[in-house]
């Protein structure tokens, strides 16, 4: 797989699914996401996925929202 074409994403887990974050993470991996980190206390998962996989992550059970990561800097 050409990882260079991957998009960095952040996934928001829905409130009801917060008690089984591990299951949601497993499903995200199965859907094609490479997971960098899980912020369990916030209910977010960060990582990357091929561009054609990103939209489908929204349909993974327990996922409330998906956004592409932004670059930020000092202000």
């Amino acid at each position: 797989m050409d990882r260079a074409a991957d998009r960095k994403v952040v996934v928001l887990i829905s409130e009801p699914a917060l008690h089984d974050v591990e299951d949601v993470v497993s499903r995200l991996k199965q859907a094609g996401m490479a997971v960098d980190a899980v912020q369990a206390v916030l209910g977010t998962v960060t990582g990357s996925a091929p561009a054609d996989v990103v939209a489908g992550l929204r349909a993974v059970p327990g996922v409330l929202d998906v956004e592409l990561q932004r670059d930020l800097g000092t202000r």
Binding site: A37, V41, L42, T44, Q69, D71
Partner: peptide, 22 residues
């Protein structure tokens, strides 16, 4: 959450917020 060059991404910032909340 920002590099020595002064830049970062949403992912690092979320990890930092999560660390602070924890």
């Amino acid at each position: 959450v920002l590099s020595d060059a002064g830049s970062g991404t949403d992912g690092g910032i979320l990890s930092g917020i999560s660390w602070a909340v924890s």
